[in-house]
Simulated assay, not measured.
Amino acid sequence: MRAPGFWWDRNSLAAKALQPIGAAYGALTRQRLQKPGRKVDIPIVCIGNPTVGGGGKTPTAIATAALLVQAGARPVFLTRGYGGRHAGPMRVDPAYHRARDVGDEPLLLARAYPTIMSRKRLDGGLHAARVAGADFVVMDDGFQNPSLVKDFSVLVLDAGRGIGNGLVFPAGPLRSPLIPQLRLAHALLVIGDGSAADNVIAAADRVGLPVFRGRLEPSAEMVEELQGKPVLAFAGIADPEKFFGTLRQHGIEPRVTHAFGDHHRFTKAEAEKLLAEAKEKKLTLVTTQKDFVRLDGDGPLAALRKATATLPVRLVFDDPEEFLRLAVEKIKRAD
């Protein structure tokens, strides 16, 4: 899904027309957020966002798990597996499963720590709690799902995108009214630069929600390898322009860009077109890690995967010590 332009314009006719539906949907989701969840045998850390689409949840989940590992914890990830054909619950094996099986995020998570994929959060949480050796769960998304008790919940927000027009889906990008979401969270993490999230930071301050800052850092090795090369960049994520901007910020100038919808499943025809254009214009193909794991298949898709470079990114906290202190405090309080 590509975010419509009116999500960033509160006064647009489309946003105004859809506002009554958004208000009704917001009332339902707000009520749903209040439902009691089930407590599993080990603590749950939830990394979500207040809006539809991406905001850096998966890199944040991996970085949060890594911080807790430094404190001696043993994580297991829980993810829904958007776009995969299996319902789960099941443990993801990146050597065996493909994106068409389990979705793209589970494959990225499973490269770091054990990962359970389940469309039903409760079933997945119960399954994750039984993974041998694990002593806490990190949920990638699922903040608005009330089926599980979350012991430490973090809302992630892109500083450059914010919450758009501040309206609830479908009139805007919010999954539920903002303030009730902030009151249920334990921390707000704002990623990157920009002022679009300033109003959310102010709202978080008003409700006493701790605010942290972070940034996505690309692999220095890949930046060095791609600098100076003319590239064709393509991405099927929530905000492809953010990826293209990251390339430019690090001295990698895309001569051509192609944006696709979030979780886009590439076709053989699209693969052939990208390969032909890169060959004709003598460009190096580059994409995101999430897109790369979706390039599974034979023929043109296999050729595109072989020809494409990726630019891995990692989430870096500005104050990892304080973030870890708060996370450990909440987790211990839950025991």
Rank of each mutant, 00 (worst) to 15 (best):
G160P: 03
G160H: 10
G160D: 10
G160Y: 12
R161N: 06
R161Q: 13
G162P: 06
G162H: 04
G162K: 06
I163H: 01
I163N: 01
I163K: 03
G164I: 04
N165Q: 12
L167C: 04
V168I: 06
V168P: 01
F169R: 00
F169S: 04
P170R: 04
P170G: 09
A171Y: 00
G172I: 08
P173C: 01
L174T: 00
R175P: 08
R175F: 05
R175S: 06
S176H: 15
P177S: 11
P177E: 03
L178D: 03
L178W: 00
I179D: 13
I179K: 05
P180Y: 00
L182N: 05
R183Y: 06
L184E: 10
L184I: 10
L184R: 15
L184G: 14
H186L: 06
H186N: 14
H186I: 04
L188A: 11
L189H: 13
V190Q: 05
V190F: 09
V190W: 11
I191V: 15
I191F: 14
I191M: 13
D193V: 08
D193Q: 15
G194E: 06
G194H: 14
G194W: 07
S195C: 13
S195A: 11
S195F: 07
A196D: 05
A196M: 04
A196H: 08
D198L: 09
D198M: 02
D198G: 11
N199M: 12
N199K: 13
N199G: 14
V200H: 04
V200S: 10
I201D: 02
A203W: 07
A203G: 12
A203L: 06
D205F: 09
R206C: 08
V207P: 02
V207T: 15
L209G: 07
P210R: 03
V211P: 02
V211K: 03
V211I: 08
F212K: 02
F212D: 14
R213M: 15
G214D: 11
E217T: 15
S219Y: 04
S219I: 10
E221W: 00
M222L: 14
M222P: 01
M222T: 09
E224H: 01
E224T: 12
E224K: 15
L226D: 04
Q227C: 13
Q227F: 09
G228H: 00
P230G: 14
L232C: 13
A233W: 12
F234G: 02
G236S: 12
G236K: 08
A238I: 03
K242L: 15
F243L: 14
